[in-house]
Design a protein around this nucleic acid. Structure first.
Lengths: 330, 330
DNA sequence: TTTAGCATTGTCAATAGTTGAGTGCTAATT
DNA sequence: AATTAGCACTCAACTATTGACAATGCTAAA
């Protein structure tokens, strides 16, 4: 545990660095600490020894290490209250009765992205733990129907199916009946296995154009499981304006990561506090921090996240996420 | 019109520059033209005079101007045939019967993005010229239903509606009947106007919780019209690896543009040839070229586009787009 | 019309010198 | 025992300066 002055000093250094993006020198902070720059230097050397500060080169000022940020977030920082104005902006969205909840969440995260100038992400939960609830068929014209697949947790997928000599509405309905009778309750991930081993063998008895229709549904379920598109970014490049992202390579590599569905789904949070992943922990870039939390509202769960530079206004962002999480969960 | 040698020379310079990204000097190409570097220089000076070439500084080699690229594309270049391997890869997708057409298009453009290392875009047509065909309601649980909105051109939008004390399934059905009786055939863009002026005034007679239900549908239609999400990128940052995109600012600005829905929808192409928009014409960046074409398949239309550096392999890309367009339109 | 030859131009990379902000350490001070 | 003043030292960042080089334009000869 650090002494009082050391705490104060680390806090000042982190916040100064967050503000200016420049290594913090001893002279610049000795006023705020009421002591000489030499004293500051001694303390700084100690904080560096125990791994909370770093230098960019032998004679540079100090920069917080990842450990330093961590200590700051865990012990020195207090989440910042939102301003009246901010609360107002968010309330007009959150209290809009005619907005569906998930839309309200997305909209408020868009606002937060604008207010903070970082990137926001709303990530619906993966559907692999959803179970098939039912399949519906709706004819929409003489030569097409929509098949609607519904899961127990409310995920919906629709797929338009063309009708032709090979495929009749009647046959599709028979297939749907089969599925509804035999596969309801199956994990979405496993529907296709069952489709292949339980439905396919008996399908010939009921349906003429088995091959075409079987493929149709096989594909529809396949799409549903492979679809990880259940997310929504806002301000995707906002934070990349910070001076630490000054190389084309770096910008490209981060943008690439934010396009990568595997990376995105790895952001899904499982614990419900406000969790802070600093630098390398973010799995995106050593200069990036991700702050996220899981929300659960009547059974539906998801992750909301703010992605920004490691040199991020932690107090502000954590305050906002706490607020939003609180609001949507009631 | 240029002379024979001038044509040849411009072609060589453009292709050399596309390959190396370095200004082309007189010495390096005099062998291919069977004349001395001095002669090349004289001709180069002429091509520069008439605006087809540029210099990066007084004593640098030459670089094609936008006009030069244009002339190259219009007069000097021949679309390149696909290799057997490429045709094969694309055919396995295009001939897969169980893929819906739009999926097949998206998939093949993904392949093309990989084959060329540029960015591909499939852009569904805007739905503003669609007309309302019908609205369906499907109950999915005790406390929710899906409303499905279908247009004459086959666009489908679904929206989950929560049922509670305020909103009953019965009332929703009544509303849907009203809409299906009175608004079918209306342009999607105008549905909400009609909803407000034709349905709202008479709604009270039939439905109790008019306000809530009215808002529900108003929002659903609103979402449908404002949703321009009908597009699909592949390899969004591929081409940014080219050496001309070496500044963080440039990368950021292009990525920003490719995130911007207004920019994306401005890419929609109205003419059906293969159209080439070079540099500033691309509306994205002076170093970017967009090559695109419109396709129409049984009533449904859309745009496919390749986005890459101005220094792009025009022959390859144009060849591929021609091929794909031909394939999907049959 | 083409080409050889030459002065000229601007880029690039290397080198060197200067400045200034910052450090660490030691010895004196409180 | 803690603080501070003072001083030597380090390094990045900036500014010239230089030479090598790859082009050019132009002129005069072929």
């Amino acid at each position: 545990m650090l002494g009082k002055r050391q705490n104060e000093m680390l806090k000042i250094i982190v916040e100064e660095y967050i503000k200016t993006a420049k290594p913090v020198g001893s002279k610049s902070i000795c006023d705020s600490l009421n002591c000489s720059s030499a004293t500051v230097r001694n303390e700084m050397a100690y904080l560096e020894d125990i791994g909370y500060l770093e230098k960019t080169h032998t004679s540079s000022g100090r920069v917080p290490s990842e450990l330093g940020y961590r200590y700051y977030v865990d012990n020195l920082m207090k989440p910042k209250e939102l301003t009246g104005e901010e609360v107002l902006t968010l309330q007009t969205i959150l209290s809009n009765q005619s907005l569906e909840l998930s839309d309200a969440i997305t909209k408020s995260m868009e606002i937060i992205s604008e207010l903070t100038n970082y990137t926001s992400l709303v990530l619906g939960s993966s559907i692999s733990d959803n179970r098939l609830k039912k399949v519906e068929v709706v004819p929409i014209s003489d030569n097409s129907v929509i098949a609607i697949i519904i899961t127990d947790k409310g995920h919906i997928e629709n797929k338009t199916i063309a009708i032709n000599e090979n495929i009749s509405v009647d046959e599709i309905r028979k297939m749907v009946d089969l599925i509804n009778n035999l596969l309801v309750g199956t994990l979405i991930d496993e529907v296709n296995k069952k489709l292949e081993f339980e439905i396919k063998p008996i399908i010939g008895k009921y349906i003429k154009q088995q091959e075409a229709i079987y493929n149709m549904f096989y594909n529809a379920f396949n799409e549903m499981t492979s679809k990880k598109d259940n997310y929504h970014f806002s301000g995707k490049t906002n934070f990349l304006k910070a001076p630490e992202f000054d190389s084309a390579d770096k910008v490209r590599s981060i943008v690439d990561k934010l396009e990568d569905k595997d990376v995105i789904s790895s952001i899904e949070e499982t614990s419900s506090g406000i969790n802070v992943y600093i630098g390398d922990e973010s799995n995106i870039d050593s200069d990036v921090t991700v702050i996220k939390t899981k929300y659960i509202v009547n059974g539906e769960e998801g992750t909301i996240a703010i992605i920004g530079p490691k040199r991020m206004k932690y107090d502000k962002v954590i305050g906002m996420l706490e607020y939003i999480k609180g609001e949507i969960e009631k």
